[in-house]
Simulated scan of single mutants.
Amino acid sequence: MAGVLDSVNQRTQLVGQNRLELLLFRLKGKQMYGINVFKVKEVLQCPPLYEIPNRNPVVRGVAHIRGGTISIMDMNLSIGRSPLENIENCFVIITEYNRSTQGFLVGAVEKIVNMNWESIHPPPKGAGRENYLTAVTEIENQLVEIIDVEKILAEVSPLSDEISQGVIEDGIGERVVQKHVLIVDDSAIARKQIQRVVEQMGIKTTLKKDGREALEYLESMVAEGQIAADELILVISDIEMPEMDGYTFTAEVRANPALKDLHVVLHTSLSGVFNEAMVTKVGADDFLAKFNPDDLARVLNERVKCMTGESLLDEEE
């Protein structure tokens, strides 16, 4: 395992090509799971774990790693199964999500594979709403399940989706009552978090689960004679998504003359190894690291003010 992630920070050349690299791992048994390498900081043999009082049952303990203390969650417990055994023989995947670092205990780490997002598909419809999958794929004739880590984190350590007092501009929703915000994210938890923030501001939302579905929706608006930039305040899009990632989605929007004027904000938990140069390259208007309700609200405030001409009036005054 030594050196398997040595070049994680150099893998950003994949970004914008609708490609990703998956770190494959196992929990119990033969089932293979995957996690995007962009979210992985390190993989190591499970270090000594120390119990903490009143911890969530999913947290097996904390570990002292690189001068810091990190909570270590049992990935098998996190998805509603039995705890991993003989943890001294297990591995810990250190990840960065939503501006925080955490570790996931797994049974074994296999290898890294280079994939195209088009080969990554949403979970089967029969999987049910309570499943912990964000996507599935097939590698060497074996099903690989990609776990919705944001769902796990929301259950272990819920993030507030309440906007702080005084952040919402007075009457902001009333100024764009006929318009809405398009939210694009493969995680059902993330979609709901963003939706709650936007709707607190009195603004309507439309939800799509990946870039391809969102692009088809926008193209259908055009086919019906609608001007998307007039109907939508902005598009808030995740980057990591099956079928079509957020970079490719944004590039496709900019390449379409009927859609090129849409305001696109990329919203992602890829904060640690995120290549911000790609935002400019694909033509996104803004980037936000997940998940801060106040930051989202401020972006919406400014966008609505810009659409209604208030920013210009404020500057003149």
Rank of each mutant, 00 (worst) to 15 (best):
A228F: 04
S311F: 07
I146E: 11
G3A: 09
Q193G: 13
L232E: 00
P124E: 12
V8W: 00
E231A: 15
E219G: 10
P293M: 07
S119F: 12
S100H: 09
R254E: 05
L27K: 04
A108K: 15
S237A: 09
T205H: 12
A127K: 03
L23I: 10
V113L: 02
A127D: 05
V273E: 03
G171A: 04
L153C: 13
E118I: 09
L20E: 11
S220P: 06
D230Q: 07
R254Q: 03
A127G: 05
L313E: 06
L312V: 14
T268H: 02
S164W: 15
L23F: 10
S311H: 08
E240K: 14
S220M: 15
K125N: 06
V177I: 08
Q195C: 12
E155M: 10
V273S: 09
I183Y: 01
R175Q: 07
P123V: 03
G166V: 05
I112S: 03
V176S: 06
A284P: 01
V264H: 05
V264N: 01
V184G: 06
G202N: 09
T137D: 02
L153R: 14
I152L: 10
S271W: 02
K208N: 11
T95Y: 01
V167C: 01
R19K: 14
T308N: 06
V62C: 04
A297M: 14
I120N: 14
A251P: 02
D295R: 14
N76D: 08
D286W: 05
I94D: 13
G107T: 01
I227M: 08
E88P: 04
G166R: 12
S220Y: 09
L300W: 01
N54S: 07
Q165V: 13
S269A: 09
K305Y: 09
G29M: 11
K179W: 07
E169F: 06
N116H: 10
P57G: 09
N36F: 07
L313M: 07
V92S: 04
I194G: 04
P122L: 10
L207P: 00
A214H: 00
S160T: 13
Y97I: 04
H267T: 02
Q200F: 10
E310T: 08
N256R: 03
I52M: 05
